[in-house]
Design a protein around this nucleic acid. Structure first.
Lengths: 340, 340
DNA sequence: CTGAAAGCGCTTACAG
DNA sequence: CTGAAAGCGCTTACAG
């Protein structure tokens, strides 16, 4: 059997409580001498505290969930963007001596279940629709410290962390407009449902206005952010709207597909059409031509998520305002002045 | 407060035990009538069992760890290959009502700590060196069901799941040899330490022999599997060994970098030099030219890892033999007959 | 500075 | 088919 507090206490000839205090670093409550003696025994016996016992007895589990939408039978689709966030969250939490539980959510009820059954201290919700976050209430969530990433829900139960989506798309559109483009298309998924895409769309439209370019709804397309959908979109665009000379997209993968689709129809990038991606995923630099794209501050986003969560766990009662992280344009090879 | 078994029992007018039996589906032990009544109350009150209480009282936690090597202060580096595995493991485990804990391991001792503190039922070790798996002993591991992925350690404490590494490299080399190549280089990381790379190297060398091609140690290079290292390698190869007409690599990213480096030095791919990747990651199909590569059965690997683990948890005492999954060549655009 | 008691929410035998 | 008792390994007040 694994060694327990009791074993250590017996060997040291002290009470359970004293060992507990030593193990938890409550220095003030134990003399240096007994502390050293106990520590030595702990080391020798290779004592590891039981997290389940601890989380049952204490109010804290030191467990944080990373909840990601999932299909029932499908494996988690983890975008390049999500991967970065996972890796960074894990590091931040590990540093603070927390553990990370990764969970796909196929049904609404599973959120509550995950939070409750493991007594999670906090959770990061990644990639949920605003509406789903809106629906969270105290009954389902309890007092878990929730951080919703890339979400524009006003629900005070979830602290928000996101990038400057309006600004990112504005940056991309501005770059194209400054290059001389006038017919600029916009492609992204789920307009109505996801606030992120909506803000980016608004950034695009805003800059159009600033440059006196009339907004043309026909130039805006709902396209899923996969390479395949991008290819289809690129082909369609080339055939149906040959007048378009530039495209703002909401994801690198989508942009990469768009470039391919365009080329498949005989249009060159950036000769005939400029394309700008979003995220600056690793692949953006691998493809040919290398993708001009909008980079998010992913490490900042992960760090901020953890910072907000720890703040709430430490007792910051007032719901902090949503944090918005800066964004920047990475100029590479897919944006150039229009021909003529 | 959250509702507990006791609350449900009180409301139903039965004992705690009966509710526990109902919740855990021990049908035989409760009459249909009380079962239905209890279930209704459970639903109404939104009862969620406490996993920590359960794992403390029972021998099982229904928690599985995914342990990945990490640097102390660095965020987890999750390769495209690892991402797939994570997503698939999560799905398989979720289906079986297990939860996944993701943990970076910076020091040896953290493995024990992770396993013990959360009473993990099992763990998948992903990306560790064979030597690290070798060192695992019963004292550090207890009776946790361990699966080591992509590892050739003989340690019976960890069930092995891997692809046919020898066969994969053999397939790639065979393809090149059949195309007419005679000077075929091999590039991969950490030869001595990682069994995976060693087997692939052996596959390469074996096929060379079969084709009567003399083995030239100078054609074998230790290169980290990043795109940057690949670029450097490609340039070096172009300058120092212009006679080489083909390269077998152990990773897509490395292959992609190699192609770039080769081209930067004025060599064309596959015109002057053929390059074959490994893994068939998504990016392999995105780059230009599209990468010819060796595909692993990733879903199979994840499913097999879970299957083995569940077998052990169900009591398969005898250590199952390591499982080896098949591999296949995906022909795309980076391999062609040599010039001349 | 140290300890005895109660309790966190379950499950595991064991009775009836 | 149902239940009372003991215990899993800790922490939290509260005493001394």
């Amino acid at each position: 059997m694994a060694v327990t507090l009791k074993d250590i206490a017996a060997e040291a000839g002290v009470s359970l409580m004293t060992v507990s205090n030593v193990v938890n670093g409550k220095q003030a409550r134990v003399s240096a001498a007994t502390r050293d003696r106990i520590m030595r025994i702990v080391e020798d016996r290779g004592y590891v505290p039981s997290a389940s016992a601890r989380s049952l007895a204490a109010k804290s589990s030191r467990l944080v969930g990373l909840l990601v939408p999932a299909e029932d039978e499908a494996s988690l689709t983890i975008s390049p963007h999500t991967v970065e966030v996972i890796g960074m969250l894990e590091r931040e939490l590990r540093r603070l001596d927390y553990h990370l539980m990764l969970r796909g959510i196929a049904h609404r009820a599973e959120i509550t279940e995950a939070l409750r059954s493991w007594h999670l201290d906090g959770a990061v919700l990644l990639g949920f629709l605003d509406a789903e976050i809106d629906r969270l209430n105290v009954r389902t969530v309890g007092d878990v410290a929730l951080v919703a990433m890339d979400c524009y829900s006003e629900n005070p139960l979830a602290l928000g962390v996101r990038s400057d989506d309006f600004g990112g798309a504005a940056l991309a559109t501005e770059h194209l407009a400054a290059l001389g483009h006038r017919r600029i298309a916009f492609a992204g998924p789920g307009f109505s449902a996801t606030g992120v895409v909506r803000r980016r769309f608004e950034g695009y439209r805003h800059v159009l206005g600033e440059h006196g370019i009339a907004y043309d709804p026909e130039l805006v397309s709902a396209v899923e952010i996969t390479r395949g959908d991008g290819v289809a979109y690129g082909r369609r665009l080339a055939r149906e709207r040959p007048d378009v000379t530039a495209v703002v997209t909401t994801a690198d993968l989508l942009a990469i597909g768009t470039v391919e689709g365009l080329r498949a129809e005989g249009r060159s990038v950036p000769g005939d059409v400029s394309v700008i991606g979003y995220d600056d995923a690793d692949i953006a630099a691998y493809v040919t031509p290398k993708l001009t794209t909008v980079a998010q501050d992913l490490p900042g986003k992960a760090a901020e998520a953890v910072r907000l969560m720890m703040g709430r766990l430490a007792g910051d009662a007032r719901p902090a305002a949503a944090t918005t992280l800066p964004v920047r344009l990475v100029e590479r090879e897919t944006a150039a002045p229009p021909r003529s």
